[in-house]
C-alpha cells in the first residue's frame, strides 16, 4: 500500500499521470454537465406540486453532495499526510478547499432560492441547513489558514490538524443541532415536504452529480498542477540566485 503510494507521491511523476486525467475529466465534465443541463432544464417533467421550480434541485442536490465529498476528501488526504508525510496529499487537500467553498456556497444559495417558492421561507434553522452553514464556515477557516501560512511549511500541520479536528467535529455539530431541533421545533418543514423522485428526474440528477464530480477532479488537478509548478519555479529561482 505504502509502496504503491510512494510511486505517485513524487510530484513530478504525479504530474505525468495527472495531466491526461485532467484533460479527460475536463472534457467529460463539460459533456456530462451539458447533457445533464439539457435533461434537467428541458426534457425532465416539472413536478406536479412544485412546478418548474423543482429544476433548482438539479443544481442544489449535486453541489450539496459534492461539498460533503470534498470535505471527506480533504479529511482523508490530511489523515494520509499526517500518517505518511507525503507533501502531495497536503497539496491535494489544500487545493480542494476553494472548490469546497464554491460547492457549499452554491448549495446554500440554491437551497435558499428553492426554499422560498416551495416552503415559503429562504432559511429555516433546521439541523441540515445549520450544519451545512457551519461546514461553510469551517471551509472558510481552512482557507484562511491556508492563505496565512502560504509558502511556509509550518502551516502544513496546522492545516492538516484543523481539517482533522473539523472532520470529527462535523458529526457532533450535526448531532447537536439535530438534538436542539427535535426538542424545540415541531417537525421541520423539510421533512414534511418530501419529494418523490421519479426515474425521469433521477437520471439528470445523477448526470449532474457525475458532471460536478468530473468538474471537481478537473479543477483540483489544474490547481495542483499550478501549485507544483509554482514551487518548482521558486526552487529554480533560488538555485539561480545561489549560483
Amino acid at each position: 500500500m505504502i509502496k504503491y503510494f510512494h510511486k505517485f507521491a513524487n510530484p513530478v511523476r504525479f504530474l505525468k499521470l495527472a495531466i491526461p486525467i485532467k484533460k479527460i475529466s475536463g472534457i467529460a465534465a463539460f459533456f456530462t454537465i451539458f447533457i445533464g443541463l439539457i435533461f434537467a432544464l428541458l426534457l425532465s417533467p416539472p413536478d406536479y406540486q412544485q412546478k418548474e421550480t423543482v429544476r433548482i434541485m438539479y443544481i442544489h442536490v449535486p453541489s450539496a453532495w459534492m461539498s460533503l465529498m470534498t470535505y471527506g476528501f480533504i479529511f482523508l488526504s490530511s489523515v494520509f499526510f499526517l500518517i505518511w508525510r507525503f507533501p502531495l496529499f497536503l497539496i491535494l487537500a489544500k487545493e480542494s478547499v476553494p472548490i469546497g467553498i464554491i460547492f457549499t456556497f452554491s448549495a446554500l444559495i440554491s437551497g435558499a432560492l428553492w426554499g422560498k417558492p416551495t416552503w415559503g421561507t429562504y432559511w429555516v434553522w433546521d439541523a441540515r441547513l445549520t450544519s451545512f452553514l457551519i461546514l461553510f464556515f469551517i471551509f472558510l477557516g481552512l482557507k484562511l489558514i491556508k492563505d496565512t501560512f502560504s509558502n511556509s511549511s509550518k502551516g502544513n500541520y496546522t492545516f492538516a490538524y484543523l481539517s482533522l479536528v473539523g472532520g470529527f467535529n462535523l458529526p457532533i455539530i450535526k448531532f447537536s443541532v439535530d438534538w436542539w431541533n427535535t426538542l424545540h421545533q415541531p417537525a421541520s418543514i423539510i421533512r414534511t415536504g418530501g419529494i418523490s423522485v421519479s426515474n425521469e428526474m433521477l437520471a439528470p440528477l445523477f448526470l449532474m452529480a457525475l458532471g460536478l464530480f468530473f468538474l471537481f477532479i478537473y479543477i483540483l488537478l489544474v490547481s495542483v498542477e499550478i501549485n507544483i509548478k509554482e514551487k518548482s519555479l521558486i526552487n529554480f529561482r533560488d538555485s539561480l540566485k545561489n549560483n
Binding site: P87, S152, S153, K231, I234, D238
Partner: peptide, 11 residues
C-alpha cells in the same frame, strides 16, 4: 553529525 541535510519551507 553525519550527512545532515534539512529542508524548510520546501527548500
Amino acid at each position: 553529525v553525519k550527512n545532515l541535510s534539512c529542508e524548510r519551507n520546501y527548500k
